[in-house]
C-alpha cells in the first residue's frame, strides 16, 4: 500500500469565516478524517493557520504569504494510505475544503524509502 498526501488549497486565505462556519467546518473535517481513520487508512495530518506565514526564497529573501506564484494558500494536509492514486482521490472527494468555491485538494504520492527529499 502507498501513502498519499492530500494538500488542502484555499483559493483565498484571507477570506473571513464566521465562528459558526468555522465550527461547522471543523466538525465536518473531523468526521471526514475520522471516516478515513475508521478504515485504518489515516497516517497523519495537520492544519496550517494562515496568519504570520513566511516563505524563504532561494536568494535568502524572506517574504510573508501569499505563497509561491499563486495566491492560493495551503490550509492543511493529511497523509492517507491507499492502493492507488484513484483511491486516494476518492478520499479527497469527501474533503470539506472542496465546499469552498475555487478551493482544491492536491493528491500527491509520497516517494518512499529512497532517502532523498
Amino acid at each position: 500500500m502507498n501513502e498519499y498526501m492530500l494538500i488542502f488549497r484555499h483559493e483565498d486565505g484571507n477570506r473571513v469565516a464566521s465562528p459558526q462556519q468555522i465550527q461547522a467546518w471543523m466538525k465536518q473535517t473531523m468526521d471526514w478524517i475520522g471516516g478515513i481513520a475508521a478504515q485504518n487508512k489515516f497516517v497523519q495530518g495537520n492544519g496550517l493557520p494562515f496568519d504570520d506565514a513566511r516563505v524563504v526564497q532561494h536568494d535568502g529573501v524572506v517574504t510573508n504569504g501569499p505563497f509561491g506564484e499563486i495566491k492560493e494558500t495551503i490550509g492543511g494536509y493529511i497523509i492517507v494510505k491507499a492502493d492507488s492514486a484513484d483511491e486516494a482521490a476518492e478520499f479527497a472527494k469527501g474533503c470539506p475544503v472542496l465546499q469552498g468555491d475555487g478551493n482544491t485538494v492536491e493528491v500527491r504520492k509520497i516517494a518512499k524509502a529512497d532517502g532523498v527529499h
Binding site: 492514486a85 486516494a88 482521490a89 469552498g100 485538494v105 493528491v107 500527491r108 504520492k109 509520497i110 516517494a111
Partner: peptide, 25 residues
C-alpha cells in the same frame, strides 16, 4: 517528512479531477 512524486491529481469542487500538480504554474 517525505519527498512527493512529481505526478499527481488535483480535485476541484463538484468532483472535478485533473492531473496535477498545478501544471499552469
Amino acid at each position: 517528512g517525505n519527498r512527493l512524486n512529481n505526478s499527481g491529481h488535483v480535485l476541484k469542487p463538484n468532483n472535478v479531477v485533473t492531473n496535477g500538480p498545478y501544471m499552469e504554474i
